[in-house]
Computed example of a mutant assay.
Amino acid sequence: MAHTNVPRSTRRTRRRRAIAVTAAGLVIGLGAAGTALAVPESGGIAGTPCSAAARACVDLASDQAWILDDGAVSYGPVRVNHGGQGTETPTGDFEVYDKDQDHHSAEFDGAPMPWSVFFAPGGVAFHEGDRNSTSAGCVKLKGKDATVFFGKLDQGDRVEVR
């Protein structure tokens, strides 16, 4: 499907409508000119643990994250770090609910959290941070990756953490 001059929200609506579930439980997407594209039986995106409904995907076991678009990886995998023991990053399906380019933590003495994209309760976000140390539940990215996630994710986008 051509994306020239089509707003991203319209493309997402079209993408959601182009996905159908067959009686066998396979997810089929419609590609160019209406050709069927089989998606893995799990309904997931190849190379990630997340579904075609996700816009961002995090794999805590491999310390990786991706941006997904139209049922395919559009950015990543990128290396991440996440919460440690006692401050684990929550797993599940979430939606982006806020963004703040120059956020400072109210919980941790004003610690900088640049390029924050908030997606889970308790202020859990993607943000730029030291990937050599665990977080208090956030998903930390290097600077360039954090700016890409900030630029590509919008309120309401689905984030899957596995």
Rank of each mutant, 00 (worst) to 15 (best):
P7S: 14
P7D: 05
P7Q: 04
R8F: 09
R8W: 08
S9G: 03
S9W: 05
T10P: 05
T10A: 06
T10K: 04
R11C: 07
R12A: 10
R12E: 09
R12C: 09
T13F: 09
T13P: 02
R14W: 03
R14P: 01
R15G: 03
R15N: 03
R15P: 01
R16F: 04
R17E: 04
A18K: 02
I19Q: 07
A20K: 08
A20H: 06
V21T: 14
T22P: 00
T22D: 06
T22K: 13
T22S: 13
A23S: 13
A23P: 00
A23M: 07
G25N: 12
L26P: 01
L26W: 14
L26M: 09
L26V: 09
L26R: 15
V27A: 12
V27C: 05
V27P: 00
V27D: 04
I28M: 15
I28H: 08
G29V: 14
G29E: 05
G29A: 13
G29L: 11
L30N: 03
L30T: 15
L30M: 13
A32Y: 10
A32R: 15
A33C: 09
A33S: 11
G34Y: 04
T35I: 07
T35A: 11
T35L: 10
T35D: 09
A36I: 13
A36D: 10
A36S: 13
L37V: 07
L37G: 06
L37M: 11
A38S: 11
A38I: 02
A38T: 03
A38K: 15
A38C: 04
V39D: 09
V39F: 05
V39Y: 04
V39C: 11
P40Y: 06
P40Q: 10
P40F: 02
E41M: 13
E41S: 12
E41N: 13
S42D: 15
S42G: 11
S42I: 07
G43K: 00
G43W: 00
G44F: 00
G44T: 06
I45H: 01
I45C: 03
T48Y: 01
T48W: 01
T48F: 00
P49H: 05
P49Q: 11
C50P: 00
S51C: 14
S51G: 12
A53E: 15
A53V: 09
A54T: 00
R55M: 15
R55Y: 12
R55Q: 15
R55D: 15
A56W: 03
A56F: 13
C57I: 02
C57Y: 04
